[in-house]
Nucleic acid binder design. Sequence first.
RNA 1: UCCCUGGUCGUCUAAUGGUAGGACAGCGGCCUUUGACGCCGUGAACAGUGGUUCGAAUCCAUUCCGGGGAGCCA
Length: 564
Amino acid sequence: MSSEGSPEAARPSNFIRDIILADLAAGKNDGRVHTRFPPEPNGYLHIGHAKSICLNFGLAREFNGKCNLRFDDTNPSKEETEFVNSIMEDVRWMGFQWDALFYASDYFDQLYAWAVQLIKSGNAYVCDLTSEQVRATRGTTTEPGTPSPFRNRTIEENLDLFGRMRAGEFPDGARTLRTKIDMTSPNFNMRDPVMYRILHAHHHRTGDKWCIYPMYDYTHGESDSIEGITHSICTLEFEDHRPLYDWYVENLGIHHPQQIEFDRLNVTNTLLSKRKLLLLVQKGLVSGWDDPRMPTLSGLRRRGYTPEALRTFCANVGVSKTNGVIELGLLEHFLREDLNKRALRAMAVLDPLKVVITNYPADLTEHMEAVNNPADESAGTRSVPFSQVIYIENDDFREVPPKKYYRLSPGTEVRLRYAYFITCQAVIKNDAGEIVEIHCTYDPASRGGNSPDGRKVKSTIHWVSAAHGVEIEARLYDQLLLETTGDESADSDFTSQLNPQSLVIPPKAIAEPSVATAAPGTKYQFERVGYFTVDPDSTPEKPVFNRTVQLRDTWAKIDKALTT
RNA sequence: UCCCUGGUCGUCUAAUGGUAGGACAGCGGCCUUUGACGCCGUGAACAGUGGUUCGAAUCCAUUCCGGGGAGCCA
């Protein structure tokens, strides 16, 4: 098992793995395990797909099997090459490589031949009903449908008509090829489902070769079958389609993969509808599919999420058939856990408050040694310039400190991380009464952060030297949605529920100089502030950082409890 | 109303006829040159009712509640 030793190896079992284990024990499929990840290239992959990717590729890896990437491209009106490319990039980024790459459109000729075969065996017919008429004759949940008047056309007539459909003799929607199954079935999918529809549309791969296109239900099982898939894993909404999936492969007499349905991933406060994500992009409400606020894999990547964190998350959310909603906090937990191990530490001040150290020489610069990652000694140390005027975080000073406030306030002493102890001596205000700077004194004996007399301070705060710091653009992200919305309230105007504060850029953020030239994608923990990653927009003149996730903040909880 | 499907701590998930466990979140504490990380502790669940059984979260019946289903979308 190649996944042994990786963090996700400790995952609990799940019903799909149990099915595979049982199949293996029974000698089914000659001991093969072959899965596939089958997205339609009509949008960008999102975190919901990550679960499916991890499941399909992960199972194949675990059982020394194979996993294909297959594009389910049977509806040319929605599909584009841009999406194909982004999907391949995202799957690789997630850390997986497909054993084979296919497109459902690879099978159009075979599918056509099989359709002819079904016509010849009396199992399919050309129907002239309009889509409205088909709907009207399909029946209801309690009443059976009524047979199409074209249901008993002769095989010869069906063959002729189907050939002419393919030849382009009829306009869109004029006819369909339908499977002759059972108009009285309680399962609508079995009431003579459409196999082919006429669509004079340009396909991103087959161009104008076809003007009839197979439906998903007619295509999926056969595609699985052709590829020798053993376990065809899909989401719960396809449960009702399984009898039809089985019907096609049985009646065609071809290899019969087993369709298994699992619960789609839902995350609190997160939009996971391709339609709505598309809308956000089209309306310009986000900067694109890779906007760091988007739950797309490309958005999460730009935001600073790591594939390792996503994989661990997917391995731990479980696979079942319950319609659950995972708390976003769980994702953030695994994210922080991973980032804590890999992110370089640095100091940055988002909302600066000027501090003058009155007894420190005005012309002196010292270089303080700071560790790059306490969780990884091999990351080494760096030197951080220190001088008389520094900036600290506005939040780290309170003129009137509340109870349990450990940070700087008049008369108190705190430690500047890796530098000195300082004591607040004076608060300088402008005419409006606003604090503009504070004056402190430092203890020269405390260089590096410890006093020889063993004196303790209650707090350590971060800082940036005013003379050496670099201005940065810190993009602070928050949830895109104001509050949990029933994602399913189909056409409710979710755009009115967008959080106007989902992106905030503090105007005067400043960071220690070491971060200025980092390459896009570099991960930092700005100590006591949060995890950040360098954005592709970044330049040495104006470094840009995306806040990936905040640090856990116990004080914020105490403070909130105190004020309420 | 009909078909499919599912209900275990706040959330997600284990236990497959034999001690209801874990993770996240919460709460309390310890540690700390990040109020981070880490560590320790703690509260918290088998939807209801009957039945089968020495024994039921698990099997049966029934009720209640949730999700999906009538595209020429996937």
